[in-house]
Design a protein around this nucleic acid. Structure first.
Lengths: 128, 128
DNA sequence: CCTATAATCAACTAATTCGTTTATCAACCA
DNA sequence: TGGTTGATAAACGAATTAGTTGATTATAGG
């Protein structure tokens, strides 16, 4: 259980925030334009309090920011926070894909020139 | 609360799976090479049962696949599932960024040629 | 056959999440 | 000043999650 600092906590909150269809729908809506809580709540059958809570989850995750306009508190999407997530994901995705491509090369070589075959196992090994 | 089908459920599970530092660490580990439960559990202070549960969460989310090698059940990262997530995120991120760039243009134009200024509000409006 | 190993299942507790209802705060307006 | 509207706070219950320990399955190997 190594501690990688507050970085982990940000990712925790951001991924958790997106792990809910209502909140993802709010993100989708806000990608088109900023909006207030009432505007965001309208398409849903949920109470405005529930939407308000969802918005707070998104805000604490850094995925949205809020400003002030009289009694209204408009929400704005924070693209930079979304970019951090894709950055994290793509780092590991690309590494794995590169590894798989390398394996494809190995398998192709094995097809053209069969190996000594000292030991046959179902799994190629821990570095497939 | 619109139903977008099983697509939502996949995203729910995938984002939820990544909303945990242990599971993200497992993903990071598996991006380097496939590994068994025991190998994956070694760096953690958690019980192997706990790690096994985390792995099941990742598997049900489609983020990893499992094969068989005797008594071992090696885990393999599924880059395609990760790609789906970045695809979802980037769709909305890029839309928002494009919108912000467009707003920058509007503001630049306003600086060079001030508007009629019929009504002044702190917020530009719902389409800022 | 018997034992060891890899992994999971089952049961339980503590903590968290999601939605509701009721009440409160703050800003606008007539 | 009093009333309305936008938004949040607080308290509650149902459901889920993350961890534990102890028992169980299944394969490997002497």
């Amino acid at each position: 259980m190594q501690d990688t600092g507050p970085y982990d906590d940000r990712l925790d909150k951001a991924f958790l925030a997106l792990a809910d269809p209502v909140r993802r729908s709010l993100v989708a809506r806000l990608s088109r334009s900023s909006a207030t809580v009432n505007e965001l709540a309208e398409p849903f059958q949920l109470s405005k309090q529930a939407i308000s809570k969802h918005i707070q989850v998104l805000e604490k995750a850094g995925l949205i920011t809020r400003t002030r306009d009289g009694q209204r508190r408009p929400c704005h999407l924070a693209p930079a926070a979304l970019e951090e997530l894709t950055f994290w994901i793509d780092g590991y995705r690309l590494a794995a894909e590169a590894r798989f491509r390398a394996l494809d090369g190995v398998l192709a070589a094995m097809r053209t020139a069969p190996p000594p075959n000292k030991e046959t196992r179902k799994e190629v090994g821990k570095d497939d």
